[in-house]
Amino acid sequence: MSMFGQVHVKNGQYKIKGDFHELTPNMPIRNSDDGWKLMGVTNPRDMTYIHSYGGESIFFESLSKGKLMATRCDNKKCESKGSIYQPFRIFCPDCLSKMTVIDMTDIAKKTAKIHTFMVCERSGAFNILKRPIKFINIEFDGVCTILMSYLAVGEPEIGMRVVPIFQKLDPTYTILDMAWVPEKTKSNHLPKGFSF
């Protein structure tokens, strides 16, 4: 019986269990305009990758706990000392020193605004968000960069105040554990599994 591939780390090494690929037979491609002559073959492949979040792990773990983490450069010699980065960057892009991880959940709750947005009717394969997807880019007071995410409730507008929500129930441990809703949205309007 097949089992989804699972991984944990022990003694600094990956320990894997289950199936990381599935074997599906290839099929001939034939030309219906020319006597069904052979033109090629299909090459099915279903693989599971093992991906490390490295120094960003705390960001993704924190989403599942309802916290939005960012980083701040505290290198006294850096020309951009004090700059806060969201998206989370492990190292300062100016001085390359390791930055300090900070909790900016309150900043997000109090100051997040839609910088720009779009409404996406189509998606690529493997998309799991409900369409249309309302992508928003979010600006925060005191943060020098802009975060991309999606609006889970309502219609986006540039300048709209939004607040973060988090998938604390059955988290995916991906960026999709975070979404945004207009300020003053009621708890009972949030998508399943999400809370403030």
């Binding site: 996406c120 998309n127 799991i128 968000l129 992508f135 991309m148």
Partner: peptide, 15 residues
């Protein structure tokens, strides 16, 4: 993971 569609990343710029 946000839609897996590059057009979207340009659409926010268009907006």
């Amino acid at each position: 993971p946000l839609g897996h569609i590059y057009t979207g990343y340009y659409a926010v710029m268009a907006q």
